[in-house]
Design a protein around this nucleic acid. Structure first.
Lengths: 219, 219
DNA sequence: TGCTTTGTTAAATGCGTATTTGAATTAGCA
DNA sequence: TGCTAATTCAAATACGCATTTAACAAAGCA
């Protein structure tokens, strides 16, 4: 893809990739500059030279990973804009799950850890990059729920969907944490799980939507 | 409740409480013994004296918190055993959400962090304490889904429910992380959210269940 | 009362790791 | 080629924090 010219830029790139991988695996605190530099085949001082400090490397590595992954998996899941709204929602959910499940996707693993223990270092950039995605999802949900749905219902349904998607990350963690035992949940078939989340969620959404109707009948 | 006799036991108790609070707030790595001792009004060496090391304190603090919280919120949500299965499932979900939402509940905040970045320190005890709860939930789900449901459908539905419940913890985190901004999700009304998760999930479960029936018609 | 065990305290120790430094090397360019 | 700036390197420094130590105090018991 992007062919890198100077040797310096190659080092920088190697650092970003290694940092993304290690930060995703261990979190900000547990990741050491020494290990990152080792994996990037760079000297221990190179992080300071290229990025100034560990915090900046963290931020740049996340941005680098996120931009790369957005290119890999289009957020609309490849569903055309003219498709029925439930299909478009399904496309977004599947795309999100694909990104979450991808072992090469570092940005979501980092977000996941950031949500459990915020370092505050990513707060601004995360807000800036994630909000547009959230708004897209909200738009689709609003359409699915109908115009009588309250803002709270909208937020709750959003939470239900995102919660299911991120559950994948938790299961992946506990799975690789104890590979010896019988798995509490087998998530090897990501496609099947994505289909399940879509079916489960669409049923949930329709149920919530139907709760909004009786009010109109009363009125 | 438990009246503490010796001064030593009081110190131990204060350490356990402070440790639970701080570990829940900051995670194992970021929590410092110094801060825990400060909050417990104990000397910095007292952790070593009473527990040996930080790891043991972590484990004991989790156990202490978990046992205490189980007493506060019965897992069946107060629904009698004779009630219809969907009501019993609803009770369990609501009870779980109540425990998750409780600001005094440290054990789940710790589990949440442990799932994002396992320290492995709690792995055994967590497995031992959580598995029974999981099996209870599985039993109810199996009944709700019907006998034609596959093991995979069961696991996926379980993941859908747990994902929604734990989403609460993520939202709490991001909320307290940036209290200045407009909240992306307002989770102030826990009861309403619990009702939503129940409605959403029961609809999802019924939809999955109805997918199992056509096979019988074909056969 | 004296002796022993248990618990507390402030100060030291040691280790892991981010960061800095200054010398050595390499790339960019005339 | 030779000069300069950019980059890399190994070693040194600085700092936070878990853990240890040894002196001290309190409690239990004869």
């Amino acid at each position: 893809m992007t062919d890198l010219k100077t040797k310096s830029e190659k080092t920088r790139e190697r650092l970003l990739n290694a940092a993304g991988r290690i930060f995703a695996e261990k979190g900000y605190q547990d990741a050491t500059i020494a290990e990152i530099c080792e994996q990037a085949q760079a000297n221990i001082a190179s992080v300071n030279y290229h990025f100034g400090d560990k915090q900046t490397l963290y931020l740049e590595a996340w941005r680098h990973a996120f931009n790369h992954e957005l290119g890999q998996h289009p957020p609309d899941g490849g569903v055309p804009r003219q498709a029925p709204v439930e299909q478009r929602l399904a496309g977004r959910i599947k795309s999100l799950i694909r990104r979450l499940a991808d072992d090469e996707s570092y940005s979501f693993a980092i977000i996941h850890k950031e949500m459990a223990q915020p370092t505050r270092l990513l707060a601004d950039i995360l807000e800036k990059e994630i909000n547009p995605q959230r708004q897209q999802m909200f738009g689709l949900l609003r359409e699915c729920l109908g115009q009588d749905a309250s803002e709270q219902q909208l937020q709750y349904c959003h939470a239900s969907i995102m919660g299911q998607c991120f559950q994948l990350l938790r299961l992946k963690q506990t799975q690789q944490a104890r590979p010896q035992r019988a798995l509490p949940s087998d998530m090897s078939d990501i496609g099947a799980f994505a289909e399940h989340v879509v079916d489960f969620s669409l049923a949930g959404i329709r149920a919530i939507r139907s709760q909004t109707l009786p009010k109109r009948i009363q009125a």
